[in-house]
Amino acid sequence: MTMIFGVPMAVFMGQLTLGLVNGAFYALLSLGLAVIFGLLKIVNFAHGAQYMLGAFAALLGFRYLGINYWLALVLVPLVIGGLGMLVERFLLRRIAHLDHLYGLLLTFGLALIFEGTLVNLFGVSGARYATPEVLQGGLNLGFMFLPTYRAWVLVAALAMCLFTWFMIERTRLGAYLRAGTENSQLMQAFGVNVPLLITLTYGFGVGLAAFAGVLAAPLYPVSPTMGSSLLIVVFAVVVIGGMGSILGAILTGLGMGVIEGLTKVYYPEAANTVIFLVMILVLMLRPAGLFGKEA
């Protein structure tokens, strides 16, 4: 059997794929955070809870309404994103003129409410969501066994990231968004409906989190606490990458996933902590973050 640095090839590649899949989730979530931060200047602490709500919506939609995976992949982000727009319109907008730390605190409170409510309704043990039939099984690539669903998650997440990049960098709406990020008052003066743009942006960021949640549902146990611990790691990823660039967020997310996966192979004790250690290293060497512009 082929060995890579003393580890069987199949194990190595398996962990590498796992790492890439985790990285894809980091990328999707940090992208959503970056989009929201760009225009609203707040860190959306409810992002993990909204990811969790996405997974739960897919689970409950299937259980009670018979909504299948593919439909859920489209509907859930719209519904949860819509919910996010309500949150922006009726809560976040009221504190938009204040110090942006209040936005962090408000969304933190929302995360506690969402998480606590679902813990009471469904417990913490977590439920399983069946992988759609088409994506069951795997491919034998000769040097490794690649589960189809993991491959699909990677493709879908990357496609969504690229779609987001295209929306923001190549469309008129995206141009408004970028301009609003630079100077939203001037945009308003030019006749762009900035409050609406803000609502849509928040909804889009939340929708991205919910999309990630649906993707994650067949992969991890669906539980009310699935989002919070993930979010803290995503925060570290955001600190490492900086929230200034979209491609930066995607690359950092994937990279950190791979680093985490490889740590699992070579030094499993540090797998939980390696991303935080990378963050410390980045803070010491390049405080603004790898792709950051902030001084």
Binding site: I95, Y102, L105, L106, G109, L112, I113, G116, T117
Partner: peptide, 15 residues
């Protein structure tokens, strides 16, 4: 419901 209550107080305080 403690954590839900704390979350609610958070939201009310901030708002």
């Amino acid at each position: 419901w403690v954590s839900v209550m704390l979350g609610l107080i958070f939201v009310v305080c901030v708002l």
